[in-house]
């Protein structure tokens, strides 16, 4: 009895081209690029983003002129106010990107092409992270220049160059927290107009309430951890921790809501 030396495997059936393409996931980089193009997708988006740095620089200049210069913490205070008002157009862009997709139901064609909502949300997060880094870098580079000018004018020493790491930390934390609060509002309210109104009413109101009663309203004020890090005398550790946990919970809840939201 003889055995064949090799056993030939049955020829593999060639899958049609559509099957091969449907089995290969589009790279995450493509998703991020798409979200970036959406960020700049309309003329109003482009104008908003073009004017955003101009506004940030203008507002930083204005608030730096009114700031007190006696201590490093006081020299940092205008930064905390500036980022809340100066990043206004950046908030508009972020809110339009996230809430607009659900409002116009344009999330539907996106999810039909790319059904994983976690990947979709992650791609949007990368875009928001990029916006944050650019905003923080611009703030970090320009703000000390204005404060140095003001300190010179007021005949005080410029104290922010002693601890640049601290200035960078406060800048990163402050811009991150205020952008996250805009993102959270956009995640919970799938209507850009409503989200913008809520954001521009709630955040300034919280700022006023916090300045009146920091121990009470600090717990719900999104920038409380940045205030603490900036060494503001009325900022409390407990308030900062509670505020951080509260806004983190709102962020997670927003992500869960997007996972479950009806896509039109």
């Amino acid at each position: 009895m003889t055995f064949p030396q090799t056993v030939q495997a049955p020829p593999q059936q060639q899958q049609p081209l559509w099957h091969q393409r449907a089995s290969a996931r589009t790279g995450f980089g493509n998703l991020v690029l798409v979200e970036f193009r959406k960020l700049f997708g309309t003329l109003s988006d482009r104008l908003t983003l073009l004017l955003a740095p101009v506004m940030l620089i203008g507002v930083m200049y204005l608030f730096s002129r009114t700031g007190k210069m006696e201590s490093a913490a006081k020299q940092m205070f205008p930064l905390l106010i500036s980022i809340q008002f100066g990043l206004l157009l950046t908030f508009v862009a972020v809110i339009k990107l996230v809430a607009g997709e659900w409002h116009y139901k344009s999330a539907q064609p996106t999810l039909l092409m790319q059904p994983s909502r976690m990947r979709y949300l992650s791609a949007q997060t990368v875009v928001v992270l990029s916006v944050w880094l650019v905003s923080a870098l611009l703030t970090f580079l320009i703000y000390p220049v204005f404060i140095r000018m003001q300190a010179d004018r007021e005949r005080f020493g410029f104290l922010l160059d002693i601890r640049p790491g601290w200035v960078l930390g406060v800048t990163l934390a402050g811009t991150a927290l205020v952008l996250i609060s805009a993102l959270i509002v956009a995640m919970h309210l799938p209507n850009p107009t409503a989200a913008l109104v809520v954001f521009f009413v709630v955040v300034p109101l919280l700022m006023v309430a916090r300045s009146a009663a920091p121990a009470v309203f600090g717990v719900i004020y999104p920038l409380e951890p940045a205030y603490l890090l900036a060494g503001q005398p009325d900022a409390g550790t407990v308030q900062a921790i509670v505020s951080g946990l509260l806004w983190l919970s709102l962020l997670v809840w927003g992500a869960i809501r997007i996972q479950r939201r009806d896509a039109g």
């Binding site: 089995s23 997708g41 997709e101 539907q108 039109g264």
Partner: peptide, 16 residues
């Protein structure tokens, strides 16, 4: 990559 399996039109108004 499901768009290569099925092209879907559910709502023509779902566009920015």
């Amino acid at each position: 990559n499901p768009s290569h399996v099925a092209g879907v039109l559910l709502d023509g108004q779902a566009v920015h």
